[in-house]
Design a protein around this nucleic acid. Structure first.
Lengths: 250, 250
DNA sequence: CGACGAATTGAACCTATTCAAAGGGTGTGG
DNA sequence: CCACACCCTTTGAATAGGTTCAATTCGTCG
């Protein structure tokens, strides 16, 4: 570990990007939609998952690939990106441990609409579409939970549509920071540090704006002591202040 | 039927906003997620649905209501609206026959995030959350189909995020018109007439812009012979022209 | 026919983008 | 271990696209 680094981020990834068998079972058990399964069930479905390690920047799956697999993030951070004809990429989400991507419900013959990229070194569990659907057939509790997760994601997506339609740039950035803070936040001497490498470009791609505008807004936030930020990291120092900007009363 | 009306729209709704028993079974059978059921199964689940009629403008369910029911549009058009603190409403979707709302997957204790309003006189089938979940438990084919529909909706929502993030107003309006054309379009002496009452305010609320900007864009489209439009109606006369604006190559 | 609501249009304003240039942290190779 | 190169970030100034506010026209319905 380099001693001179200034980044306050500390994202642990198991050596060689390999997760131990213990970790695999633990990850599987912690998945929201496997919470209803017993140890026994977990050991039964475990063999269907293959485990793959990635380095930061590696592409895990490409938009346009046949949607024949489903992925679960075991360790690390994974970006879900949508490419536009204009060349402007949209950062749909950043996934952490326990989250899945590659929708389990899409009909046969479909392709992925998003590209998944490892934002940090990452360990990912992969399962074939057919195998996962078998699991769904066997365990109705799992299916219900998957439905629930999909519903909540649809909600989140609709909320984003609303934000993009109604809020100015600073409001949208405030919203994204709050969301990332809830998901990846870690209390710290700096404040609530978001444990994700987060560049201005990333934030811009998440809020439908430009890196320059993002930079201006972030500078203003920092001047107002709402956040502390540096090269590819952000910490929230005034949660309520951010909230006030994210949900303007008037 | 009034003889002097200029609106080319012609949306039929059964008298008294009541659907016949035949229509109910037909509607249920046509639902994407009930397509795997036999006549027999349909007759079995039919009693769980209650049927309610609404007049244009009636509120079917309110954002904030407990999410204890699920709705299926039998006839008419239903608007799904999200309210913002700023007062600016977002029109998330316009539903036609066979589409459902009131997510089947949301966890117990949750509330609706959207308000559903009858945009025309409408007939809606209502089922209790618990009853629907029972159906899901009994018919795994139904569950899979619901998952599929949810996946496709999530895709659509994500695509909208992308459009709002990357396209200028005219591109977003073009996209919405194409979508509505596919869904509600009907060939006609005018072109492809969208069988939905559609005001400038509605289009603005669907594309995250203002009625004035919408009006300017629509005027420009009409001048270029891409659409024909009047008070609360639109017909597409040059599909490929619209497409070119919706998906700019550069 | 008259009135109301919807749609159009104009002009001023403002937010955010674009283009350009300079500053600063990180990591690499000498 | 230092120096350099690269990329991220910041900041400035000009511009464009969209909004806002206001006034007018038009269509539809009573």
């Amino acid at each position: 570990m380099c001693a001179r680094r200034k980044t306050p981020l500390d994202i642990h990834v198991t050596a060689e990007q390999q997760c131990s068998v213990d970790l695999r079972l633990k990850i599987l058990g912690q998945l929201p939609f496997f919470e209803s399964l017993t140890e026994d069930d977990l050991t039964k479905i475990n063999p269907f998952f293959r485990e793959v390690g990635y380095l930061a920047g590696d592409v895990i799956c490409h938009a346009g690939d046949p949607a024949e697999r489903m992925f679960v993030v075991a360790e690390g951070r994974v970006r879900l990106v949508r490419h536009s004809l204009s060349g402007k990429d949209i950062l749909l989400d950043i996934l952490g441990s326990g989250e899945f991507f590659g929708s389990p419900g899409v009909p046969e013959g479909e392709v992925f609409m998003e590209t998944a990229v490892a934002q940090t070194a990452a360990c990912v569990l992969v399962i074939h579409r057919a195998d996962f659907q078998n699991i769904l057939k066997h365990f109705s509790g799992v299916t219900m939970k998957v439905l629930e997760v999909m519903s909540l994601r649809l909600r989140a997506a609709n909320e984003r549509v609303q934000l993009l339609s109604t809020l100015p740039v600073e409001g949208r950035i405030a919203h994204v920071l709050l969301g990332l803070g809830e998901k990846f936040g870690q209390k710290n001497r700096l404040g609530l540090l978001i444990q994700v490498p987060l560049s201005r470009d990333d934030l811009a791609a998440m809020t439908g704006t430009t890196p320059e505008s993002t930079s201006r807004v972030m500078s203003a936030f920092q001047k107002d002591h709402i956040i502390k930020t540096g090269r590819a990291w952000v910490a929230i120092t005034n949660w309520d202040g951010l909230k006030a900007i994210a949900d303007p009363k008037v």
